[in-house]
Design a protein around this nucleic acid. Structure first.
Length: 296
DNA sequence: AAGGAAGTCAACCGCGTTCAT
DNA sequence: CATGAACGCGGTTGACTTCCT
């Protein structure tokens, strides 16, 4: 089947966005919200394809985007999540508040995969490189520079922490809340979706994200209201949805063998573990278990 | 100082999935 | 059921920057 282009490319602007274009896009989204990307450029007075607008907003203009250096904790988490999830950049990004999939993908391709290679690891499998691929024949960074300002190799940081007598821990961020749209509603109905605030591991918070913008609970995915009451919103997106539903539930079978109760129990255990250690998790196996549960 | 090599990252592209008609 | 629209994702590109010789 021949696929129609997402928009007519005749007369469209391409390449880097100008400040004026950014301003128009921001103003439009502030006034009308996200979504309806195809018609957005016309309504916003932009000579851009809708896809381009979405990308610009998601990867650059969104107010909650954290720009700048990836922290050591984020660094470690990316590697560990990549080992479990593979190149699922959006899923990895979902666990790093304020980071975009594009940013993490670029960061991985630019630094992390190369660093793993220099450490003798295969960046795809996270296993030691076989003897069939001896170090001298590896394709890695050829030469050059102390990379990005502020970039600090993880091994060095770990050594510094060890030297300081610090425990080696991985900071765990709570799953990132996302817009939740009802199963029964059109994706284009912006009045029936909501955004909640990004939440990190401030476990004791009892404030419900989402606030007054919540739609009828009956329209939400199973488990939402339960976690809303306790102040957490599980990130549910694609197959990661831990409560048998979520943003992209379309087509999901209600016969999913994993019960709500099982998943809820697992999630509660996860929260308890983090609570017990002020937002950190020492036990790699517990982190792995949680990550695997997301893929179940 | 200049030119080329290499790195970075925003943006583009194509495809898969889901929903509406 | 078939088709097209809309969206999101991962891979790739290419302009620009930085470094090396």
């Amino acid at each position: 089947m021949v696929r129609a282009p997402c928009c007519s490319k005749v007369g469209m602007h391409r390449g880097p966005w100008t400040p004026r274009e950014d301003e128009l896009l921001i103003k439009h989204i502030q006034a009308h919200g996200e979504g309806q990307w195809r018609s957005l450029p016309r309504k916003a007075g932009l000579l851009r394809c809708g896809k381009s607008c979405r990308l610009r907003w998601m990867n650059y203009l969104r107010p909650d985007i954290k720009r700048g250096n990836i922290t050591p904790d984020e660094d470690d988490l990316i590697i560990r999540l990549h080992a479990l999830l593979g190149n699922k950049w959006s899923l990895i990004a979902g666990r790093l508040p304020g980071r975009t999939d594009n940013e993490i993908k670029n960061y991985w391709n630019t630094y992390l995969s190369k660093r793993l290679i220099t450490q003798g690891m295969d960046p795809n499998t996270h296993k030691k490189l076989s003897e069939l691929d001896p170090p001298g024949r590896r394709s890695g960074p050829k030469k050059r520079r102390n990379v990005t300002p502020g970039f600090n190799p993880s091994s060095k940081r770990k050594k510094e922490r060890k030297d300081n007598g610090e425990r080696e821990k991985t900071k765990i961020h709570l799953p990132k809340p996302v817009r939740v749209t009802s199963l029964s509603l059109s994706r284009n109905n912006s009045h029936t979706s909501f955004e909640s605030n990004t939440t990190t591991a401030s476990i004791s918070s009892g404030n419900a994200p989402g606030g007054s913008a919540l739609p009828n609970r009956d329209l939400l995915w199973p488990g939402y209201d339960r976690h809303q009451r306790t102040g957490f919103l599980i990130h549910c997106e694609d197959q990661v949805d831990p409560v048998n539903g979520g943003d992209d539930l379309r087509g999901k079978s209600s016969d999913d063998p994993t019960s709500d109760n099982q998943l809820e129990t697992l999630y509660e255990e996860y929260l308890q573990l983090i609570k017990a250690d002020n937002g950190y998790l020492d036990d790699q196996s517990q982190l792995d278990l949680f990550a695997e549960s997301l893929l179940a």
